[in-house]
């Protein structure tokens, strides 16, 4: 039972286009002050789901409730949105551009100007305020778009693939900024197909594939429930042991490690004993939680 009321509720939401179903009977809840990951491969229906939340498109059936109200156009001002399809007015100056989008979110006057300066400084773009947008690099433009998403201090921030196209330094900067917003009590929906990033940032996740929900819940619980004896190994010798299907379900090379997923009837102790008995030299033997990626693959196979 949650003590706080969810920020966003989707109930049996379905969206069809002429010849295919983009989102099918999707139900989920996003709790306030947390980072919610919407995860799935390209074309799974993430963007369509988000478009319905920000009221760009309307579901064919089902119900969406935001901030305890039925979704309506007036709630748009309380959402900040970084679309996956990025776009800015190319010839507008950066400052004017930010000002325009702030006004579209009902933020104006000196308050808007001050916030623009604060954000530009924070993301290291102050020198670019009077430059035309087309003179900026792609990464810089993306940061400008991030500012557009957060400048009006929205309660819900939706970021669709926020890290794509950023260099490692800026990925780090973006992560920190997202966590700062979370610390301020904002609710954040992060849509991505990059599971490693979701793993590090999200509190809750919802996995979708082929328009349907595959799995959702708190990330920690999901991982715990899937911590089905995956082991990271470094060893020499012991030929053939890890290829025994009664012992090991799946083997994967991961850097220097060999990652094995134990068969349902086996356990880590058994594997260790068999390896020792076979005379293998074991340099590393570590129980690991399965990655989101593995969980996703496994769930998709099940379905």
């Amino acid at each position: 039972m949650e003590l706080t009321k969810p920020t966003l509720i989707l109930e049996h939401v379905t969206k069809r286009f002429s010849n295919f179903t983009a989102v099918s009977d999707l139900s989920l809840q996003v709790r306030p002050g947390r980072v919610f990951g919407l995860i799935g491969p390209n074309g799974a229906g993430k963007t369509t789901t988000i478009r319905m939340i920000v009221n760009i498109t309307v579901p064919d059936s089902g119900r969406i409730e935001l901030f305890g109200q039925r979704l309506s156009i007036t709630l748009q001002d309380r959402i900040g949105y970084l679309p996956e399809e990025r776009g800015l007015y190319r010839t507008m100056r950066v400052g004017e551009q930010l000002r325009f989008f702030a006004e579209l979110k009902d933020l104006r006057g000196t308050q808007a100007d001050d916030l623009i300066d604060i954000w530009l400084k924070k993301l290291g773009l102050s020198d670019w305020k009077h430059k035309r947008t087309k003179e900026l690099s792609k990464g810089m433009q993306q940061k400008i778009q991030f500012i557009i998403a957060v400048i009006h201090d929205p309660d819900l921030i939706i970021l669709d693939e926020p890290f794509s196209g950023l260099d490692p330094v800026n990925v780090q900067l973006m992560k920190e900024t997202i966590l700062e917003e979370k610390a301020k009590g904002k609710t954040i929906i992060l849509s991505t197909h990059q599971m490693e990033i979701a793993e590090k940032l999200c509190d809750d996740v919802c996995m979708i594939n082929h328009s349907r929900k595959v799995l959702d819940g708190r990330l920690r619980e999901i991982r715990r429930s899937f911590a089905r004896h995956a082991v990271a190994l470094q060893f020499e010798g012991g030929d053939g042991i890890i290829n025994d299907p009664d012992l090991v379900a799946n083997v994967r090379e991961s850097g220097d490690d060999t990652e094995v997923l134990l068969a349902p009837q086996a356990n880590a102790q058994l594997l260790l004993r068999r390896l020792v008995e076979s005379g293998a030299t074991i340099n590393k033997f570590e129980l690991v939680e399965p990655s989101l990626h593995d969980i996703f693959i496994e769930k998709v196979r099940e379905v």
Partner: peptide
Amino acid sequence: EEKETRIAELLFSSTR
């Protein structure tokens, strides 16, 4: 221009 540069999506998320 707004369609090509995909600004439309951002605009539509802010107003009618």
